[in-house]
Each structure stands twice: as C-alpha cells, then as structure tokens.
Amino acid sequence: MNRRLLLAAGCLALLAVTSGCLGIGTGPVDPEQLDSEPAAAYEWESNRTAHIAIQENTQFRTVLETNSTTVELYREDGFGGTNPLSVEAVRYRYPDGTVLTGTEIREEGGEIRRTRDETVVELPDDAPASGGSLAFTSGGTPKRFTLPTYVDGTYEVVLPPDRRIDFPVFGQVSPRNYEATIDEQSRVHIVWAEPVTTDSISVQFYLQRDLYIFGGIAALVVLVGVGGLLYYRRQIDRLRRQRHEMGIDVEVEDDDDGPPPGMR
C-alpha cells in the first residue's frame, strides 16, 4: 500500500511540474540572460512590422514594432495551451533611436518576467504605445521555424545562407501569400508585404546540399533495384537452361496405339 501511495504521489508531482502548477521557472528573467549580446546586430530599419533572422545554430533574432506597452511572448504547446518563450539579449528601441538593454528596461519602470503560459515584457514607463521596437533572441528547431504572430502587420523571415524553400516536401511556407528573394550572401528573404492575418507563420527549409544527398540516395536505390531485377532475370534464365538440359522441359510424343486387344 505504501508503494502505491508513493507512486501516486510521484505521478501527481510529475503532472504538477509538467503543467506548471508549481510555478517552477516563473518570475523575473535573469539579468545576464537579458543583457547578453545578440549573435549579430538587430535589424532595426527593416521597414517591416516584424523582422526575423534565423541563425545557423537554430536560434533566431526578432525585431517587433510595438503597438502596446505590454508584449506577451509564447509558443503553443500542441494541447490548446501555451508555454513561455525563452528570450535573451532583449533590447528596446525608442522612436528617437535610443536603445535600452533588458536591465535598463527594468530601471526605467519596465519588467520582463515568465509566467506559466508566457513571457511578459512591460516596456518602460515613458515608452510610447506605438513607434518603438522590441528585439530579442530565442531558440527554434532545425530546418523548421514556427512562431505566433505577436503583432499585426507585415513580416519578413531571413534564412541562413544556402537554405532554400523551393523544392516541394522539403520546403514549405505558410501563409502562402509571400514573396521570396535571394541576397548577395545567399540568404532567402521571405516577405509578407500585406498584413498577416493568420495566428502564426511557418517556414520549413533545407540546405541546398540536402537535395544532392537525397538525389544520390535515390539514385543508389534505383541502381540496387535495377541490379536486383537483372540478377533475378539471370537466375530465371539459368534455371530454364538447366531444366532444358535435364529434359524436364522436353515434350515426349505419345506413340502408344492404346491398350492391347481385348482391353479396349
């Protein structure tokens, strides 16, 4: 009975942790995490409501034009709920070009904290309701990028060098009303010039060399299949020759005139 009680208590504790009921990981985001340096400069002058640059290490840098003094950052968990988005290298840029780090945002009356469902960014007290920009770095998954549309407006996603979206199955973009161009650094720019109305954007991409690898594997499979078919046909031909040499396939003419007289 004691073992059953311990097992039940352990399962309950696990459910509590996984559902966030214990509040583990909530509260103010660590200052060192907030003030860390981004891998590259944020694109403040993109002329898009949201600019997202995906890095080769699967992290991405985002710049959002703010239309509210509070921004809620999250990911959908696949079960109808949300999880807080992990952020680092947080910056806020005033309309006049002044840039604050994460701790400076707090010093000016703002806050950056995690709840069970989202990461809440409260801008400084003197931040305008619109016109400023919030930048942060977060993590993603290899070769697939999905993010909720936190702000209404136009979006741009920049892929790492030598990544592509053109080949079906390997490359997919949603929503579909986008334009794609390639810059001098071999980076694909995916632009939604019209305001995005979907709840999220999604980009599945691939390395150019992936197509060569896939093509090589497909060619190898075809060669193995053709070689197997030829071997099978040769084996059949060899067996036929052996049967012929053994007389198995030789038809014997029946010269018998029938049973002896009286037996017919």
Rank of each mutant, 00 (worst) to 15 (best):
L64E: 07
T137V: 15
P124H: 05
V120T: 03
E65D: 09
R48D: 04
E37P: 00
K143A: 10
G132F: 05
A135V: 01
T101M: 12
G102N: 04
V29K: 06
D126L: 12
S86V: 02
A127L: 10
Q33W: 00
T137R: 14
V71N: 05
V63P: 03
E107V: 00
E76T: 11
Q59K: 07
E76S: 10
L73H: 01
Q33A: 08
E37M: 09
E122C: 02
A53N: 10
V120I: 15
E72I: 07
G131L: 11
F60I: 02
P28Y: 09
S86Y: 02
T62P: 00
F145E: 07
S130Q: 14
Y94P: 00
Y74V: 02
G110K: 07
P124A: 09
A39L: 12
P95Y: 09
E37L: 15
P31Y: 07
V71T: 15
E76L: 09
R114T: 09
P84F: 06
D117T: 11
F136T: 02
L123I: 04
Y92Q: 15
T69E: 06
G132L: 13
T82A: 15
T70C: 03
E45I: 04
F79T: 09
I54M: 10
I105W: 03
L123T: 00
E76M: 05
H51I: 00
E88R: 10
R106Q: 09
P128A: 09
D35K: 00
V90S: 11
V99F: 03
T115A: 01
R114C: 07
T103G: 04
G139W: 15
N83Y: 08
P28F: 05
P84K: 13
V29A: 14
E88L: 03
K143M: 12
L100E: 04
L34F: 01
T101K: 15
S46K: 13
G109N: 13
D77F: 06
V29D: 05
N83C: 08
D30T: 03
F79A: 10
E43C: 06
V29H: 10
R61D: 10
L34T: 01
W44M: 09
R61Y: 02
A127R: 12
T49C: 10
L34Q: 01
P142E: 14
A127V: 08
P128C: 11
L73I: 03
L64D: 13
L34C: 03
L134M: 08
Y42G: 02
R144C: 03
V120A: 03
G80T: 12
G131A: 14
E107D: 15
T62A: 15
V90Q: 02
V99K: 06
F136R: 08
V87M: 07
T141W: 06
G131R: 14
F145H: 15
P28V: 13
D117P: 00
L123W: 06
V90P: 00
T141Q: 13
T98C: 05
T70F: 01
I105Y: 03
P124Q: 10
R91Y: 04
G80Q: 11
E111T: 02
Q55E: 14
T103C: 04
K143V: 03
E32K: 14
E43P: 01
W44I: 04
F60V: 05
G80K: 14
R75Y: 05
T103A: 05
